[in-house]
């Protein structure tokens, strides 16, 4: 069990969260859950993206200055955040039921 597991287990209860991956600097999976559980293919692709994104345009964005990367599809998105030499990846649905919708269903 990884140090971050309790935090992410709570985060998995957040409406719309579909899965998460926690990687170290080398891209090894430290922790994962949901749709991204042990998803090494996604981890590899995102590591490749991070390598490319670190040099997107050195004249405007200093090398390795970026903090977050997001990939937005029609129905869901991936949020990638670099913190404390770890890579946090969260997959979220963009169709989160609002409280109004829930109320309508209940009626």
């Amino acid at each position: 069990m990884h140090l971050w597991d309790p935090v992410y287990n709570r985060a998995m209860e957040v409406p719309g969260q579909l899965g998460y991956l926690l990687l170290n600097e080398e891209g090894a999976v430290l922790s994962s859950a949901g749709e991204l559980e042990n998803d090494e293919k996604t981890a590899d692709i995102i590591m490749g993206l991070l390598t490319l994104a670190s040099t997107v345009d050195p004249t405007v964005f200093p090398v390795r200055s970026f903090k977050t990367l997001s990939l937005t599809y029609d129905q869901h998105c991936y949020m990638v955040c670099l913190s404390n030499r770890k890579i946090h990846i969260v997959k979220k649905s963009l169709n989160i039921p609002t409280s109004t919708n829930e109320l309508t269903v209940n009626i």
């Binding site: 996604t42 692709i45 995102i46 490749g48 993206l49 490319l52 994104a53 997107v56 964005f61 200055s65 970026f66 903090k67 977050t68 990367l69 997001s70 990939l71 937005t72 599809y73 029609d74 998105c77 991936y78």
Partner: peptide
């Protein structure tokens, strides 16, 4: 590289962000 993530979907919008 981003298109490899979900080849069955339309290419995503990629946002690289700093402060």
């Amino acid at each position: 590289q981003a298109a490899k993530l979900e080849p069955q979907n339309q290419p995503p919008i990629i946002v690289v962000e700093d402060d």
